[in-house]
Each structure stands twice: as structure tokens, then as C-alpha cells.
């Protein structure tokens, strides 16, 4: 089986969020960049587990971005991908990124394409669905479990207030979230091996962008916490009822 895992680069979860250029760009200088946690912990690690269960499985990684993305791609290879493809393009919007991935994936013979449920920076949950439509493939989003049973895939996805078990044939696109796998740390053998794994750079195809970022804003600062004495907790209940009017 051939699996394509889409990985995105995001600021670390603890990175300071600030903007430059008249609030139109994320201030990335000095920020620690990581593989988007949903792509890494859930999509990639589950793909690695599938390979561990069936040694014939091949995992390709794909990332859309500049050469400054190579360190996180190498880290993903250290975790366990076989080879990586980077589309040498500047990310404009999710439709453009999905179009770039689709151009690579359409002749790649992939049985399974896996993404994280969303990136932790733009929180769009968009790439998997767009890619599925561009490739005319079925798509199951927000999967918490994925198992192979012969030629069939059994996927459990989160729905509003519960779970749904779906059965599908391959090829299939799945977006992954917590429950799919557990976070792993690359070992020394993986890190050494990653240096010699192929990282192919391809040029982007012509693709439209449908959206652009007009500006960013930081949320207004909180007015400050109103502290209630631990000796009079009932005062908190009064405030929530009469002042905040939330209970």
C-alpha cells in the first residue's frame, strides 16, 4: 500500500503570536517551527503503524512551502516516512495548497492520503476536503480510528455529540485527530537515516487562490480577573447570576 501524508509547518504551540507589516503578516522571526501536531502525532504516526503492520507499505510525505521547511520535513522523515516531496511554492490560501498537493497526488498511485484535522495556525480543516474534491475521491474527516480489513478501511469519525463508524474502499482521503495514534519521538537511528532519505523538490503548478488575508488582530486584553474571597464562594454565584448573567 502507498500512503501520502500531508504535513504542514506551524509555529510551536507556545509561540508568541504577534504580527508585522501593518498586521498583515505573522511575526515569524525567532519563532520555533514544528510539524503541525495533528499531521505529526495522528496522521504520520498512524501511517507508520500501518507500515509496521505491513512492511510492503510505502509512506510519502508532502509539504508545500519554501526551503526553510526542510528541517521539519527531515524531522518527519526521521519519525518514519520513506521519502518526501516539497512543492516549492509560497502558501497563499488553502485552495492553492490543495491544488499543489492534488497535482502531485493525482498520478502518484496513492491508496490513502492522510492529513491532520486542521493546522494549529489557520484552523481551517480545509485541505483534506478540497483535495478529495480535486481528486474525485471519498473523504472522511476528523477520524479518531482507522483500521484496514482486507481491501476495506474502517474509520471511526467524530460527529456532533458522538462517533460514527464508516466503511470505505481505497483510495480514500482521511483527516486525523486525537485517538488515531500516540505522539512519538524520533530515535537516533531515525534521525541518522533521515539525512539520506530522498527529499524531492518540485515546482508548483499554476493554481488560483480564492482568498487572502486582509489583516490579523489580537483579541482585546481581558479587563482583569475579579477575585472573590475563598471564605465567601457564594458571592461568586451572585456575580455570575447578577453581573455576568450567565447562570
Amino acid at each position: 500500500m502507498k500512503i501520502l501524508v500531508c504535513i504542514s509547518k506551524t509555529p510551536d504551540t507556545t509561540a508568541k503570536i504577534a504580527f508585522t507589516d501593518n498586521n498583515t503578516k505573522f511575526a515569524g522571526d525567532g519563532v520555533q517551527w514544528i510539524i503541525n501536531p495533528y499531521d505529526e502525532w495522528y496522521a504520520l504516526v498512524r501511517a507508520i503503524e500501518l507500515k509496521e503492520a505491513d512492511a510492503g507499505t510505502i509512506i510519502h510525505l508532502i509539504n508545500v512551502g519554501g526551503a526553510d521547511n526542510d528541517p521539519i520535513i527531515r524531522k518527519a522523515l526521521a519519525l518514519g516516512g520513506d521519502e518526501a516531496i516539497r512543492v516549492n511554492s509560497v502558501n497563499t490560501d488553502s485552495y492553492n495548497v490543495a491544488s499543489q498537493i492534488a497535482a502531485v497526488a493525482k498520478d502518484g498511485g496513492y491508496h490513502l492520503v492522510m492529513t491532520g484535522k486542521e493546522t494549529i495556525d489557520y484552523n481551517g480543516s480545509s485541505i483534506g476536503g478540497m483535495l478529495a474534491e480535486l481528486l474525485d475521491l471519498p473523504y472522511i474527516s476528523h477520524a479518531i480510528k482507522l483500521d484496514l480489513s482486507g481491501s476495506e478501511v474502517i474509520v471511526v469519525r467524530e460527529i456532533d455529540g458522538g462517533e460514527e463508524t464508516d466503511k470505505a474502499a481505497l483510495p480514500l482521503i482521511v483527516s486525523c485527530q486525537k485517538g488515531m495514534a500516540e505522539q512519538r519521538i524520533p530515535n537516533m537511528k531515525g534521525i541518522m537515516g533521515a539525512r539520506t532519505k530522498p527529499l524531492k523538490v518540485v515546482e508548483p503548478v499554476d493554481a488560483e487562490s480564492l482568498t487572502s488575508i486582509a489583516s490579523f488582530e489580537l483579541p482585546p486584553a481581558k479587563a482583569g480577573v475579579k477575585l472573590v474571597s475563598p471564605d465567601q464562594p457564594e458571592e461568586l454565584v451572585r456575580l455570575l447570576h447578577e453581573e455576568a448573567r450567565v447562570i
Partner: peptide, 8 residues
């Protein structure tokens, strides 16, 4: 943060 996204 918030982003203001322009649809073209």
C-alpha cells in the same frame, strides 16, 4: 488571534 479573510 483573529484574521480578516478576503474572498475574491
Amino acid at each position: 488571534a483573529f484574521a480578516n479573510i478576503s474572498i475574491s
